[in-house]
Design a protein around this nucleic acid. Structure first.
Lengths: 200, 200
DNA sequence: CGTCTATTTGAATGTACTCAAAAGCGGTGG
DNA sequence: CCACCGCTTTTGAGTACATTCAAATAGACG
């Protein structure tokens, strides 16, 4: 029913694998169905797994002391997601990972991840590339946060992640952009006004 | 005069190298003295090198359309710095890297970096770890930006990077935190006031 | 010593937030 | 199938946090 095609294709964008390596890799992962609204990771838990999203939608977020949510990332099909810092360092999670739509994920445990990297160092390259992509993405986000207005960040988000934008709520987008949902609503009204007027 | 000890020690925190690997690695890097106030990388240039700071201080920043600077990162002794996205993808730099103090750096060109990774895949692990550290650092920065006030972000910066804080100007710290130097000055006055009053 | 930039200070302004309430929308059970 | 419930989105008024601009002061460097 659920095959490893998606995750293997994702990996084989970066590595050439023989059958033995494929078998070893697949022996280390397990697939899980996770229902909408469930929490894949709760704050304070140990984060034991790295997750690949086969289908569905997840969101990682954290709470500030006033209870306001800050969305750290979204993960749709073909994305990897975990609380990376806690996964790597065996610390308790600072974030929660919430299931936005019924999803199917592949999980690799920290133990198996360590085994994968020590037994098959070839996979170092895969994770080097995934980490460098994640790094450059976060750095670009920091740059946009420093140099763009809330409205420009919203436009940039729509342009970069149109599929996410049409999957998640505005409240969630607002918490990713670092603004309130009320203010995002104002931004959308203003932007709509601009476009509307330009057609006169 | 300048030895490879510092960079080799940095690498050997993550990898065990034999003499041949050390020789190969050092054959791929060159050291450079760079004077204060010079630009190691200019916006629009191709970013051809990954830099390791042996001594001194560098800063990466970008300009928004109003000419306001946003500091992306600082790099003191024993840090790695480049415009990673452009280094990896051969794009023109979006950021500038400025020399804050007379510095000595080790550079590895993109060509040599590619060669290093293909000839000595062992180094994949090194860069996987450097990338994952950079990623988790940027992610934490995003979290703080989402959930902390300007004053709290400043306190966190002081706690995390005391050496940087005492090396660079307040203007530069402000541009890293995403606030104006005037407002940072107000924050410092208020914080000083708090500490002062608490001694009454 | 003079120049240049960083830092401080204050007033006026603007951007984004809080709070409250109404409207919209989706899901669920009767 | 419809009515209700809960959550999201919109709207507006008042407010707070942070910016801009201008000017004075302090520091660093040649």
């Amino acid at each position: 029913m659920v095959t490893y095609d998606s995750i293997l294709k994702n990996i084989q964008k970066h590595l050439v694998l023989d059958q033995e390596e494929i078998d070893f890799f697949t022996s280390l992962i397990r697939w899980r169905r996770v229902p909408k609204k469930s929490l894949l990771l709760k704050e304070g838990q140990l984060c034991r797994h790295l997750n690949y999203v086969h289908s569905g939608a997840l969101r990682a977020y954290c709470m500030d002391k006033k209870g306001k949510e800050g969305t750290i990332m979204f993960a749709l099909a073909d994305w990897w997601i975990t609380d990376m810092y806690c996964f790597l360092n065996g610390k308790r999670a600072m974030m929660q990972i919430e299931v936005l739509e019924d999803s199917v994920i592949f999980q690799i445990s920290k133990e198996n991840w360590d085994r994968l990297l020590s037994d098959q160092p070839k996979f170092e390259k895969l994770f080097r590339i995934l980490m460098q992509n994640a790094y450059t993405r976060e750095q670009l986000r920091a740059i946009e946060r420093l140099s763009l207005s809330a409205e420009e960040r919203y436009e940039s988000f729509l342009a970069k992640y149109p599929v996410i934008a049409s999957t998640v709520t505005q409240k969630q987008i607002a918490s990713y952009l670092g603004i309130t949902p009320e203010f995002l609503s104002v931004i959308r009204r203003m932007a709509g006004g601009k476009r509307g007027r330009s057609r006169d």
